[in-house]
Computed example of a mutant assay.
Amino acid sequence: MGKIYERLTDRLREFISTQPVYFVATAPESGGHVNVSPKGYADTFSVLDDLTVAYLDLDGSGVETIAHLRENGRVTVMFCAFQGPPKILRLYGTGRVVTHTDPEFPDLLTRFGPHPGVRSIIVVSCDRISDSCGYAVPFMAFEDDRALLDQWSERKDVIQKRAYRAKNNRESIDGLPALEPAETDPVSTHS
């Protein structure tokens, strides 16, 4: 039923590009809370090459992924087919956080659609790519992306975004360090 792939094939890339939602899972090295985050906006995910993917990390109330990746790098990205043939695709690997202070940030940012609340870009080097049947995943119809996160971010000025990130994004719920003070400054351009 399931298969392990040596790389992201054209068929897998097509599957990824048609999914309106994906999930990102991380965990601290020991103890603490495992985190799973749903991600919308299909234009926030990009396949960079046969073994590397990236996604936009947008403003949010938590910062678990950044904290966990900086501690141990372990990450899994999962896609589920809610329409068409059943399929679950998991990309296991090592993730790293790229913020606006990193030289590669501007070039990576061009890979994504326009979103005002870009906090960072998560780059994942895949060491295992596998699928499974997804026979129990329900059929669901995609209506539209929720615009609420982009709208929330557009209503905040630079000072408000900086204050929000300083208050909510400096450490994980388990007290692991996340964004550095210089990284809480909002990106001045949209993705």
Rank of each mutant, 00 (worst) to 15 (best):
P103F: 01
P106I: 00
D107L: 06
T110N: 02
R111F: 07
F112Q: 03
P114C: 05
P114F: 02
P114Q: 13
H115K: 08
P116E: 04
G117E: 01
G117Q: 01
G117Y: 00
V118M: 09
R119P: 02
R119F: 00
R119G: 00
I121N: 04
I121W: 04
I121C: 05
I122S: 03
V123Q: 05
V124S: 05
S125M: 12
S125Q: 15
S125W: 11
S125L: 13
C126S: 04
C126V: 07
C126H: 02
D127A: 10
D127Y: 13
R128W: 08
R128Q: 14
R128G: 07
R128H: 10
D131E: 11
D131L: 06
D131C: 03
S132V: 10
S132K: 14
C133P: 08
C133V: 11
G134N: 04
A136W: 15
A136T: 15
V137R: 09
P138Q: 10
P138V: 10
F139D: 11
F139C: 09
F139Y: 12
A141N: 14
F142W: 12
F142A: 09
E143I: 12
E143Q: 13
D144R: 15
D145Y: 12
D145F: 12
D145K: 10
R146D: 13
D150L: 05
D150H: 06
D150C: 06
Q151W: 02
Q151P: 04
Q151Y: 03
W152P: 05
W152E: 07
S153V: 02
S153C: 08
S153N: 07
R155D: 10
R155C: 08
R155K: 15
R155P: 07
R155Y: 06
R155Q: 14
K156D: 00
K156P: 02
D157P: 08
D157S: 07
V158M: 06
I159Y: 09
I159S: 14
I159G: 10
I159W: 09
Q160L: 01
Q160V: 01
Q160A: 10
Q160T: 07
Q160C: 03
K161C: 03
K161H: 08
K161R: 11
R162K: 07
R162F: 02
R162W: 01
Y164C: 03
R165L: 07
A166T: 14
N168K: 12
N168W: 11
N168L: 08
N169T: 08
N169S: 13
N169V: 08
N169L: 10
